[in-house]
């Protein structure tokens, strides 16, 4: 009897067990990225640039060449790679502290230059790795270990909306914000990730997908509650959708 595999681990994952907490969305997004790399047939020329953050090990989780950049500098490292080897496919995978605080300058200038680089941006409104400190994306009123009285706009300013900032930059070829809380969202997110890679492989410009993600551990909630909290609070602050699409529909 012949069997056809209908569901398997993507070739682009290394089979190394993830180190993420139960209910963390990093793992779902990793899988989606790996599926896209498989489907585009680019695994053997793809390089991942991992950040410093909970996904610091991402370069070990993908079955591709990879490295880990200093905190915030992933897109600068990716820029160097692409300028030296334009034939490679390079993507960065970054958290909100990495991309929107310490690495803001690199993020904006990489996007503005339209580097042929793809970025997966995990916005969990918190510094996960260092134990739950305030992120630039932390919501107003949200309590973190460094905003113990709740984030107040007078003291800490407002949540940073990266997509709304980046959409003004002409080097950006694909830009979208999404979530992975329902199966439908998962499919939409995968479509966006594919387009963000196509923006690079079709030589159009910079591609970024922001994924609103849970951090049950540092939010202090069980996974299901964290999903609900994301739906009820993060989606309100950070509207979902496509901000820039120069890739167009696949034929």
């Amino acid at each position: 009897m012949e069997f056809t595999a209908v569901y398997k681990m993507p070739d682009s994952l290394s089979k190394k067990p993830f180190t993420y907490c139960p209910g963390c969305h990093h793992g779902i997004v990793h899988r989606l990225v790996a599926e896209v790399i498989d489907e585009l047939g680019i695994r053997e020329k793809t390089i991942i640039v991992a950040p410093v953050g909970c996904s610091v090990f991402a370069y070990e989780f993908f079955n591709t060449d990879g490295t880990v950049a200093p905190h915030g500098r992933a897109t600068a490292v990716a820029t160097g790679m692409k300028r030296a080897r334009p034939d490679l496919v390079v993507f960065t995978y970054q958290g909100d502290g990495d991309l929107a605080a310490i690495g803001t300058a690199e993020t904006i200038h990489t996007a503005n230059r339209g580097e042929r680089v793809t970025t997966i941006f995990i916005n969990n409104a918190i510094y996960g790795m260092t134990g739950g400190q305030m992120a630039p994306t932390t919501l107003l009123g949200m309590k973190t270990t460094t905003s113990p009285y709740g984030r107040s706009p007078e003291r800490e300013g407002y949540p940073v909306h990266m997509c709304e900032i980046l959409k003004e930059l002409k080097g950006v070829a694909f830009l979208a914000r999404t979530k992975v809380t329902t199966p439908k969202d998962v499919l939409t997110t995968k479509k966006y990730i594919k387009k963000a890679f196509l923006a690079q492989t079709k030589d159009i410009g910079y591609g970024l997908v922001e994924v609103l993600s849970t951090c049950p551990t540092n939010w202090g909630m069980p996974p299901i509650k964290a999903m609900q909290w994301l739906e009820q609070n993060m989606v309100v602050e950070y509207p979902l959708g496509v901000f820039v699409d120069k890739v167009g529909e696949e034929k």
Binding site: R73, A76, V77, T79, R83, L88, E106
Partner: peptide
């Protein structure tokens, strides 16, 4: 580069691809 911080990391990237 947009800064020396970015420049050194671009160097890291370009060197790592050989």
């Amino acid at each position: 580069a947009e800064s020396e911080v970015a420049a050194v990391n671009m160097l890291y990237g370009a060197s790592s691809v050989g």
